[in-house]
């Protein structure tokens, strides 16, 4: 198998006396979608916050593109090419799509905002994801549906030249048709060569779009499965702890 885009080896994280991550191994590949599943309290959020630099890990080794890195703050993670799309999307409803996609990284020309250049890049980024669901890139975000907003948030990561995109529950609040839209988008993101990590509780979504499934159980990585070689029941068994991978010591 190819070199993983990101590899975590034996990462740990504790909050006071509570060990949330007890030496986790995890990998994600460019061009592949990896699901991170697990019950509430399994340590998914902590794992992701470490990857995004918000809460650095206590111990363990993180390698990005084969080189060892120390993720200590969000800016640095972002400059490496790691972008997180949080569940609440962090969009400004009073601004339009282009303005949101360039928020905090506005392009300037002669000291003023270069709206034309930003609009052009935003359109290109959305086109690279074959987005057709928005009518105008100058629409205010307040007028967009949940799925369209998710599209904008994902499009923003493309604009930032992300190599690894982490999506936190991207379909949690969406209806059937919009979920479909977003999953297609996720697939295209991976087809464009990016590494994608999805955190999800929805196994139907996971099986539809993911190549690999990693299962966390109480701070341990209990399984790393290829989607085509596993079943829903098996994944549920790992999530609930009724099945434990051989070689993993409790």
């Amino acid at each position: 198998m190819a070199e993983p885009l990101i590899r975590l080896q034996q990462v740990t994280k504790s909050f006071g006396p509570v060990d949330v991550l007890k030496g986790v191994d995890f990998e994600a590949y460019a061009g592949k979608v990896t699901a991170l599943v697990g019950d509430n309290g399994a340590g998914k959020s902590t794992l992701i916050k470490g990857l995004s630099g918000v809460q650095p890990y206590d111990g363990g080794v993180v390698s990005f593109e084969g080189r060892e890195v120390h993720l200590t703050n969000p800016r640095q993670a972002s400059s490496l090419g790691i972008e997180v799309v949080y569940q609440d999307l962090a969009l400004c409803e009073n601004l339009d799509i282009v303005q949101n996609m360039f928020l905090g990284r506005e392009e300037l020309k002669q000291g003023t905002l270069d709206e034309a250049a930003m609009e052009f890049s935003a359109i290109k980024a959305l086109q690279s994801l074959s987005v057709r669901t928005v009518k105008s890139v100058r629409q205010k975000v307040s007028s967009l549906s949940g799925g369209q907003r998710q599209t904008v948030a994902i499009g923003r990561t493309v604009l930032r030249n992300a190599k690894l995109v982490i999506l936190d529950e991207p379909t949690a609040a969406l209806g059937v048709a919009q979920t479909e839209q977003v999953l297609n988008l996720v697939r295209r993101l991976a087809d464009n060569g990016l590494g994608v990590i999805i955190i999800s509780h929805n196994l139907a979504d996971v099986f539809q779009v993911c190549d690999y499934i990693s299962v966390l159980y109480l701070g341990n990585m209990v399984a790393r499965l290829e989607t085509v070689k596993t079943t829903r029941d098996e994944v549920v068994a790992y999530i609930t702890g009724t099945k434990v991978l051989e070689g993993v010591n409790e």
Binding site: P74, R75, Y86, C92, E93, N94, Q99, L103, G104, R105
Partner: peptide, 15 residues
């Protein structure tokens, strides 16, 4: 305008 619309989003965008 961004801070007025959603301060948290603005903060996360590095503003």
């Amino acid at each position: 305008y961004a801070v007025g619309g959603n301060p948290e989003a603005a903060r996360r965008s590095g503003i």
